[in-house]
Deep mutational scan, measured.
Amino acid sequence: LVRYRTISKIPQITLNFVDLKGDPFLASPTSDREIIAPKIKERTHNVTEKVTQVLSLGADVLPEYKLQAPRIHRWTILHYSPFKAVWDWLILLLVIYTAVFTPYSAAFLLKETEEGPPATECGYACQPLAVVDLIVDIMFIVDILINFRTTYVNANEEVVSHPGRIAVHYFKGWFLIDMVAAIPFDLLIFGSGSEELIGLLKTARLLRLVRVARKLDRYSEYGAAVLFLLMCTFALIAHWLACIWYAIGNMEQPHMDSRIGWLHNLGDQIGKPYNSSGLGGPSIKDKYVTALYFTFSSLTSVGFGNVSPNTNSEKIFSICVMLIGSLMYASIFGNVSAIIQRLYSGTARYHTQMLRVREFIRFHQIPNPLRQRLEEYFQHAWSYTNGIDMNAVLKGFPECLQADICLHLNRSLLQHCKPFRGATKGCLRALAMKFKTTHAPPGDTLVHAGDLLTALYFISRGSIEILRGDVVVAILGKNDIFGEPLNLYARPGKSNGDVRALTYCDLHKIHR
Rank of each mutant, 00 (worst) to 15 (best):
M256D: 15
P442C: 03
Y170C: 01
V180L: 13
D186V: 09
G199I: 06
H73A: 12
G164L: 13
G303M: 01
D444G: 10
V136F: 05
K272M: 03
A247K: 03
I284V: 09
I361Q: 03
V307C: 01
I183D: 01
F304M: 04
P273F: 01
D88R: 01
M433L: 10
S298C: 15
P118D: 03
V393I: 07
F140N: 01
S331K: 02
C427L: 08
E195P: 06
A330E: 01
I91Y: 01
G116V: 08
K84Q: 04
R211D: 08
L201H: 01
R358P: 03
F378G: 04
T98G: 01
E64F: 01
A155W: 09
V226Y: 13
A204W: 01
A392P: 03
D133Y: 01
E359Y: 03
V132P: 01
I144L: 06
A338S: 06
I324A: 01
N310K: 02
G426D: 04
R362P: 02
S194A: 10
M390T: 04
Y377G: 10
V212L: 13
P398R: 02
I284F: 01
E359F: 02
L216W: 04
D404W: 01
P282F: 01
G116Q: 15
G280C: 01
Y97S: 01
W75T: 04
C406S: 08
L327G: 03
P117N: 14
M139V: 10
A224W: 12
K434P: 01
N275F: 01
P184T: 01
P82W: 08
H169A: 09
T203V: 11
S313Y: 06
P282K: 02
F185N: 04
S220N: 09
G303P: 01
R205T: 04
K287G: 01
L446P: 02
V95L: 08
M256I: 15
F175A: 06
I340R: 03
I284A: 03
D143H: 01
G278S: 04
K287S: 08
Q269D: 01
F378V: 11
Y170Q: 01
A423T: 03
A247G: 01
Y350G: 01
E375F: 09
G443P: 01
K434W: 01
D444L: 07
F294E: 01
V302C: 14
H448A: 09
A423D: 01
K436E: 14
P163Y: 05
G422V: 09
G267S: 01
W174V: 04
L266I: 01
Q127L: 05
W174M: 10
L394S: 01
G426E: 08
Y80S: 08
L241N: 01
V447D: 02
A338P: 06
Q415W: 05
G305A: 14
